[in-house]
Structures are given as C-alpha cells and as structure tokens.
Write a protein that binds this DNA or RNA. Structure first.
Length: 280
DNA sequence: AGTTGGACCTGACTGC
DNA sequence: TGCAGTCAGGTCCAAC
C-alpha cells in the first residue's frame, strides 16, 4: 500500500520527467477513478491543455500542479494498490489501468489501480491546505511542524492505541500500516499501548523513529513487500522490504532478539505486528 | 468528540 | 479442479 515513502518516490521521479510537459489528452478507462470529481468529463475539462509546472505531495497523495495562470492541481490518491507508470504514447492500457494522461512528448502517465480505491481529482489552486481533501490533515512528518510539543498535545487526548493514532491522517499525514508497524518497533513501543500513556522520553523516541524510518524508506525508494504490488514510475520495485523488522513477519524470529514476532488484531480487525521482547 | 465497524474493491490464498 | 470463504488495509461514513 503506497504510503508517504512510495508517494515521495513517485513525486521525485515525476519531477524529473514531466515538469514542463502539457497534458494533451486524458483517457479515463475506469469511471470510478474520477468519482470524487463527479465525472470523467469534468476531470478532463480541468486538466486537458494545461502544462505541468510542478509536482508536490501531501501525505500519501501525489500532486501534479498545472499551469501558472488559472492554477489547478491534479490530486492523485493511490489508495491501496495505486501506482503511476511512465510509458510511451500508444502503450495499450493493460488490465488494471484506470486512466492515461497523454503528454506532448509522445509519452503518457498511466494510473494503474487493481482495487480501485485510488482516485484522480482536480482542484483549483496549488495550495493543498486549501483543498477539502487535506483540510483535516495533520503535519507532514518530515517537516518542522512535527515537534515534541505537537506530539504531546495530539497523543495526549487519544485513548486509542499508538498504531491506530499513527495511522490517523489528522494526527500525522502519510503513515499507513507498514510504516506504523515499523515505527513502533524502531521506537521500542508496543503498537497497542494507549497513545496518551506515552512518557516524554517515549515520545522523543517515537519522533526520532518516525523521521528515521520514513527517511530510510524514501532513500530505498519505498517498500514492495510480500503482497505489495508497488512499483516506481519506471516499473522498478523499492528495496525497503529487505529492512522490515516486523511487518508481515508474524511467527518469524525478531531480527534483534530472536523472539517470534506476534500479530494481534487492532480495532477494525487489521493486524499489528510487534516483538513482545523489544517493545514496551 | 473519540472510537468502532462496515462498505467499497479485486486478486491471492485456504480449505473442503 | 473448482468454488466459497477469508484476507489484505486506505478512506469514508454511520452509529454508539
């Protein structure tokens, strides 16, 4: 599932490849991909003919900033299985391709999304903070806005478990299942521990773990774990799956102490992976 | 307000 | 071999 590191990997690659190009055509192969916009035609009207002037990211979403005048942003939400692929024009839309953005240089960006949880939405302006999608989003985890004081405030009133809170985009934007598991491990904290029961030193460890894990995962161009379909813009897998300590490792020995990794359900039935010896 | 559970989706896997 | 059931978990929504 594409989370912040995967979205950032795609953002960096798009920035190198497509800034300056104009969107000549937009083919929507699966109408559901434009559901947030209302219709494929409405989406087409807003993006076709506009030039890509920058590529951004907010949380797990990739942002294509279009036009200097009459600014529009194409918000690409990857959902569970979404990815972008840069292909040559005329490349046939294979199974799973939901939309094709044809550029003016005989190339195209394909939006591939098996499970169709992702979406494409165009909004006026370039500032994500003014878009309804991100109105409730918490700070970017790698920005200076994420401070020990903020964490104390944000975790302090939450009765829920730490992992649940880490995955709440209102608290911090961009963390999903894989990195929530890994951050908890790196911080030495059990994912089920009540968020508001963290001490000051624990929050310090948590903050450091968030920054380290996400930065390392970006450097590794994301994770393509066991049942992860993630591929970057050029179709290559990431490599962070080789450095996962707990995610999807239930029953296997902890890489630090050898204790079998445990999997326990969190509210909603999803599993948290953790080491009973390394995590308090 | 915070929390929980279900719905949306499809492919991979499991068990009979 | 086939087929029903289960799991995966990002995000939104309804209900407690």
């Amino acid at each position: 599932m594409p989370e912040l590191p995967e979205a950032e990997t795609i953002r960096r690659q798009l920035e190198r490849e497509v800034v300056g190009r104009t969107i000549q055509r937009l083919e929507v192969h699966v109408a559901r991909a434009a559901r947030e916009q209302g219709s494929p035609a409405a989406l087409r009207r807003l993006v076709v003919g506009r030039r890509i002037v920058g590529v951004g990211r907010r949380g797990k979403a990739v942002l294509l900033h279009l036009d200097d005048r009459g600014p529009v942003t194409l918000i690409i939400r990857l959902g569970m299985t979404g990815l972008l692929r840069l292909v040559s024009a005329g490349h046939p839309p294979e199974r799973g391709v939901c939309a094709t953005l044809e550029l003016d240089d005989a190339r195209a960006i394909q939006f591939v999304d098996q499970r169709q949880f992702g979406s494409l939405t165009a909004r006026p302006g370039h500032d994500p903070e003014r878009m309804p999608e991100f109105a409730h989003y918490g700070p970017e985890p790698l920005s200076e806005e994420l401070t020990p004081e903020y964490l104390k405030e944000a975790l302090g009133r939450r009765r829920a478990g730490l992992e649940t809170v880490l995955m709440d985009q209102r608290v911090i934007a961009g963390i999903g299942k894989i990195y929530a598991d890994e951050i908890c491990f790196r911080a030495g904290l059990r994912p089920g521990r009540a968020a508001r029961r963290l001490t000051g030193p624990m929050r310090e460890r948590l903050l450091q773990a968030i920054r380290e894990v996400l930065a390392e995962a970006i450097a590794a161009r994301g994770s393509s774990a066991r049942d992860e379909t993630f591929r970057d813009l050029h179709g290559r897998p990431g490599s962070f799956q080789q450095r996962l300590y707990v995610y999807q490792r239930a029953g296997e020995p902890c890489l630090v102490c050898g204790t079998p990794i445990r999997r326990t359900p969190m509210p909603g039935g999803r599993g948290m992976h953790w080491c009973p010896k390394c995590q308090q």
